[in-house]
C-alpha cells in the first residue's frame, strides 16, 4: 500500500480529536484551569492523548485572540536542552498562553527558572506523565472502547484489522499511539519493519 493511502498516516492520526468521557469535558477543563489561576497540568501515560489535548487547547486560546506559544523540550543532551529552552523562553515570555509538552524533560532546577520566566503569562498548561508541578486539570486515560472508536473513525471497515481492538490495546499496554503505528506498518505490508516478538503475536497466522 502506498503511504498516502495508508489509513494510519500521522496526518490522519493528528486529525483525530481528543475524546472526553462526557461532552462538557473541555469546558470543565477550562473552568479548572481558571480556578487554578491559569496554571495546570494534563497528566497521563504515553500515548493517552496529552499532546492532542494540548494542541486543542492551543487552538482554543488562539480562537480567543490570545497569543499562544507551544513548547516541546527535545530529547537531547542536558546542555543542548538548556540552550534550546533558553531561546524558546525568549518568545514564550511574550505570549499570553504557553503550552509545554513533555514537561518532565525539564529538570527540577530549570523548571523553577522556567516558572519564574513565565510568571506574567496568563495561562501555562503543561503535559506530564506524573502529577506534581502544577495542579492536575485533566487526567488522560485510554480504554479498549476508545481505541475501537478511533479505529472506526480511521477505518470504517473494522473487519480489515488483523486483531481485535481489545487485544491490540492490551498488547500495547494502553498506548494508543503505538497501537495505531503498528497498524500503519501492517497496512504498509512492511513486515521487516515490524518484525519483533510482539508483532508476531499480533499478526500470528492471521494475514
Amino acid at each position: 500500500m502506498r503511504a498516502k493511502d495508508n489509513p494510519f498516516t500521522v496526518t490522519k492520526m493528528h486529525s483525530l480529536k481528543y475524546r472526553f468521557v462526557d461532552s462538557s469535558g473541555f469546558q470543565s477543563l477550562l473552568e479548572r484551569l481558571e480556578l487554578a489561576s491559569g496554571r495546570g497540568a494534563i497528566v497521563g501515560d504515553e500515548g493517552s492523548g496529552k499532546s492532542t489535548l494540548l494542541a486543542e487547547l492551543a487552538c482554543h486560546f488562539r480562537s480567543q485572540g490570545l497569543s499562544t506559544y507551544s513548547l516541546r523540550p527535545t530529547d537531547c543532551s542536558l546542555f543542548t536542552r538548556y540552550v534550546k529552552l533558553w531561546k524558546h523562553l525568549g518568545s514564550a515570555t511574550r505570549a499570553q498562553c504557553v503550552l509545554i509538552d513533555s514537561s518532565e524533560r525539564i529538570d527540577p532546577l530549570l523548571w523553577q527558572f522556567v516558572r519564574w520566566r513565565l510568571r506574567n503569562c496568563r495561562y501555562i498548561v503543561i503535559a506530564a506523565h506524573n502529577a506534581g508541578r502544577y495542579q492536575t486539570v485533566h487526567k488522560t486515560e485510554t480504554s479498549p472502547e476508545l481505541l475501537s472508536d478511533l479505529l472506526a473513525e480511521l477505518l470504517p471497515e473494522l473487519t480489515a484489522i488483523p486483531v481485535e481492538p481489545t487485544k491490540l490495546f492490551e498488547l500495547h499496554g494502553g498506548n494508543i499511539r503505538t497501537a495505531l503505528r503498528q497498524l500503519y506498518d501492517y497496512f504498509s505490508g512492511s513486515d521487516k519493519i515490524t518484525t519483533n516478538q510482539r508483532t508476531a503475536v499480533l499478526l500470528g497466522g492471521r494475514r
Binding site: A3, K4, N6, T9, V10, T11, H14, R181, Y184, D185, S188
Partner: peptide, 15 residues
C-alpha cells in the same frame, strides 16, 4: 484569498 502551489508528504513520520 490566496492560491498556493505546494508539495507535502504523508506517511509514518511527521508531515
Amino acid at each position: 484569498v490566496e492560491l498556493r502551489l505546494f508539495w507535502y508528504t504523508e506517511g509514518k513520520g511527521d508531515q
